[in-house]
């Protein structure tokens, strides 16, 4: 472990720069950041952590450095949760996504602080991004019971058959979250995946994982069944391949993979024909994630099921 120390300004009541013990200063309580898997908060099975710093390089926390076995456990948890979550009513899923927004609303200050530190942006800008992220939960919450209506179809086949196409969740989705949008980008890739009933294993931004790990704490108190969202911190390069190769993962979102890694992972994903969301040009840089998200991400992670039934007396 190396690097500067003395960061975490947001946790010390004492202004930075002062030193020594003062009886009136209260020493802050650090948070141990942990993974969020199956609704629980484990450490990495590997026992590894890595140092997370702010934009200036000051130490913020030690985050778990997840291993491929953590990824495996997260997939197991996500698969276990899939039946219940995909089988829940759309109304119920919408209520829960909205509940996430409600829970976040009360913790805006905390997330604004974490995002400011993680992304090295001024506090007001960070607060705006947190607000946008909360609003994004609300946007997707409302989609839960509408996506079937815009993506489904009643098909007028030339015969005595009732024929209906409906979107269904693809299954377990591995998500490499955006690298440079620690919270708004993160929410923008998780919410569209789970609103339709998928369950996800998310690899948080390697450089800025803390808002993601904190999100786990919010999700745990939002009636979201354990395992629907599983959050890992660590290296996309280390976790991406086992997830891309995993035979029980149905889709992979490569948003957070850089060029070469994305190609490698897409190739690996072919082993069981995972659905692949390639990184999009608009997913990083200025203004990324601030635009209207549209329906693309939701619709990329559903399967159209078409049911025929004979019609006769």
């Amino acid at each position: 472990m190396s690097g500067k120390t003395g960061g975490r300004s947001h946790r010390n009541v004492k202004p930075e720069g002062q030193s020594g013990m003062n009886a009136v200063d209260r020493l802050s309580v650090f948070k141990t950041y942990k993974l969020f898997v199956g609704g629980k908060f484990p450490r990495s099975e590997s026992g590894r952590v890595y140092e997370v710093t702010d934009a200036q390089g000051a130490w913020l926390a030690n985050a778990p450095l997840s291993s491929r076995k953590d990824a495996r456990d997260a997939v197991v948890a996500a698969r276990k949760a899939f039946g219940g979550w995909s089988g829940a009513t759309a109304y119920n899923r919408g209520q829960i996504l909205y509940r996430v927004a409600e829970m976040l609303e009360g913790r805006r200050e905390q997330f604004a602080t974490e995002v400011a530190a993680a992304e090295g942006i001024p506090r007001p800008k960070a607060a705006a991004r947190v607000n946008a992220a909360i609003d994004r939960w609300v946007w997707y919450a409302g989609w839960s019971d509408k996506v079937t209506q815009i993506a489904g179809a009643a098909n007028p086949v030339a015969g005595p058959y009732f024929n209906l196409s409906t979107p269904e969740p693809t299954g377990v989705v591995a998500v490499l979250a955006p690298r440079d949008s620690s919270f708004l980008g993160l929410v923008s890739v998780i919410a569209p995946a789970i609103v339709t009933g998928n369950t996800v294993v998310v690899v948080a931004s390697e450089q800025a994982p803390l808002p993601a790990l904190s999100l786990g704490e919010v999700l745990a108190t939002s009636d979201l069944p354990g395992g629907v969202v599983n959050i890992l911190s660590g290296k996309a390069a280390e976790l991406g391949l086992p997830l891309a190769l995993h035979q029980d993962v149905n889709a992979i979102d490569l948003t957070g993979a850089d060029g070469e890694l994305a190609v490698e992972l897409e190739r690996a994903a072919a082993e069981n024909l995972k659905r692949v969301l390639r990184p999009q040009p608009g997913d990083s840089g200025k203004g990324a994630w601030s635009a209207d998200p549209g329906t693309g991400r939701m619709l990329a992670l559903v399967e159209t099921k078409t049911v025929w039934h004979s019609m006769g007396v």
Partner: peptide, 9 residues
């Protein structure tokens, strides 16, 4: 057993 009209036709 029931008869599925479409199948029978």
């Amino acid at each position: 057993p029931g008869v599925d009209a479409v199948g029978l036709d």
